Amino acid sequence: MGLTFLVLQEQLMSENLSPSAENSMIKQLETSRRMSHLVKNLLDLSRMEQQDILDNVQMDLSVLIGRILDDYTDVLAAKGIRIRNQVGASLPVTGDSEKLFRLFVNLIDNAIRYNLSSGGEIKIKGKKSKTDVCVEILNSGSKIPKQDIPRLFEQFYRVEKSRSLALGGSGLGLAIARKIVILHNGRIEITNSPDQMIQTTVWLPRNRYAEQA
Rank of each mutant, 00 (worst) to 15 (best):
D74T: 11
S142H: 01
G66P: 02
L138H: 04
L76W: 12
Q58R: 14
L165G: 03
I81N: 03
S32R: 12
D70T: 12
E136T: 12
K40H: 14
S62N: 13
T73Y: 01
K130D: 15
D195N: 14
L174T: 11
S164W: 04
R113I: 05
S162Q: 14
R178D: 12
G2S: 09
L64R: 05
D60K: 14
F101G: 02
R67C: 07
F153K: 00
S36C: 00
N110Y: 07
V87P: 13
L174P: 06
T191D: 00
Q28K: 15
R33S: 07
K99S: 13
R113A: 06
M1V: 01
H184W: 02
Q212A: 14
L61Y: 09
L138I: 06
Y157T: 09
I65P: 07
G66N: 04
A89I: 09
G173A: 07
L42T: 05
K99M: 15
S117G: 06
V105M: 10
L165K: 05
L42W: 14
I176D: 11
N56W: 00
R34H: 08
F101A: 09
S36L: 06
S46M: 10
S24K: 14
R82Y: 11
L103I: 04
Y209E: 14
D148V: 00
H184D: 11
S18C: 08
L165P: 12
G80Q: 03
